[in-house]
Design a protein around this nucleic acid. Structure first.
Lengths: 242, 242
DNA sequence: CGAAAGTTTGAAATGGTTCAAGAGCAGTGG
DNA sequence: CCACTGCTCTTGAACCATTTCAAACTTTCG
């Protein structure tokens, strides 16, 4: 199995540091769909990276509602927290069958001995923060059609970056309920809004395959600017942004 | 001037590391109310910590709307990003007259040479992330009365932690418009909801002084659990939580 | 004192929720 | 192989929270 931690942060490191990251020993673990990867409210266990599949961070709210705060794709950290935080504030669950790569938390902490690696890990955390801020503004305040469109734009870019999508087409293994939990609207309303997006020709969705005829048009509609995605963006686009 | 970086992260460090943090040389700068502290979209300049006053992070949205993604109190970092991120995704502006303590970015990065300090800085970032997630779930999906109540609960705890509030009373130098921008609702609606909170006896607000007669009652109403605030919580409460 | 900014109120319009129910499809067990 | 159960998607209608627009009132401040 490829060392995914390396893939995520090592490209910016000098060879010397990179080899230290690559020396980490990851154990793959298979997880069926819709199963907890990291339980909420408990101290984080092993250090985990999603290797294959589609997962999400979520919080349960009073009234049994669930709020999805992020989607995780291969290469994403499940729990960056390392042992610095006593308890995680949220859970992580698989949305499709997944493979999780685990390694010892102590080993990851040991990497902090190397300043450049520490900075790179920090960067990863800051990028996550940027995405959260974008969700907070886009998902919190926009009309739900724009919110859903924005989410599709983000997922497209990230899936392309992860090699899981062609330019205009990708498989989205999410139920409408899960989309609603991410965006903060009802399942019923997700359904109606998706229909509306289809009718206006912005997206085409058949059997969980999403196809975007005119990317620029959708991104304009959603007011999407992928800059906030940082390293999750494909390198080519990143370079273009400067 | 007290070294605020030390205050924020040093309490968990051994003396040796703490002295390194305290050795940083901060320059105070006075900023009038409603003025940009860090401009958005540009590379971050000096490394800044809010020393006095009340500030916020914000993003401008199309349509001229503004979204506030965080409130900053004395001791909070204005821009943790250091130079790892090329451009900031958001701006920071003062809401009351402020004092900002600045120091060289390079000096802060130099601290990454000490693994324990690097971990402490990382922790600060992770805690910010937790707060963002809490906002995303609470502010995104709840009814607006609960959202506002939740915000008041959070501010109370943090203000107490910063020594800027007694247990039940604090000064909130925010306009209703700013509250609305944080919560994602109209000024008009903020006004009505605040009246409603007042009428139900949950808060008393006179002339920007907020008084909370029954903290437990308000926190229950808002479904507030301050655990997510981490170090911003006063030490006593933190200990009680475990 | 006058202007600008913030707060308060009302009435109409709207976006999203809720409740209810049907239709399609996959998996399970008899 | 069929009936049954459970899950996702779809549709309709009534209802409610929040927005929008408009205007008056109050406070702050140069």
């Amino acid at each position: 199995m490829k060392n995914l931690l390396a893939a995520r942060i090592a490209n910016l490191l000098p060879a010397e540091d990179r080899s230290r990251v690559e020396a980490l020993n990851f154990h793959p673990r298979r997880v069926p769909a819709r199963e907890d990867i990291c339980p909420a409210g408990r101290p984080p266990g092993e250090f985990k990276i999603l290797a294959e599949g589609f997962a999400c961070r979520y919080k349960l709210m009073p009234g049994g509602r669930r709020s999805i705060t992020a989607f995780l794709l291969p290469g994403d950290f499940c729990d960056l927290q390392v042992s610095v935080l006593k308890h995680t504030d949220h859970g992580v669950m698989s949305l499709s069958p997944c493979v999780v790569a685990e390694t010892s938390r102590a080993a990851v902490e040991g990497l902090f001995a190397y300043p450049r690696i520490a900075l790179a890990l920090w960067r990863a955390c800051l990028e996550e923060e940027q995405v959260l801020r974008e969700w907070l503004t886009q998902m919190g305040r926009n009309s739900s059609d724009r919110q859903l469109a924005h989410l599709l734009c983000e997922l497209r870019v990230r899936l392309v970056g992860a090699g899981m999508a062609s330019e205009k087409t990708f498989r989205l293994p999410l139920t409408q309920e899960e989309l609603g939990d991410a965006v903060g609207i009802t399942t019923v309303h997700v359904n109606r809004v998706l229909q509306q997006l289809r009718e206006s020709g912005l997206v085409r969705i058949v059997d969980r395959m999403v196809m975007i005829p005119d990317i620029a048009r959708l991104e304009e509609f959603a007011d999407f600017d992928g800059t906030y995605l940082g390293a999750a963006q494909p390198a080519a686009e990143r370079a273009a942004v400067g």
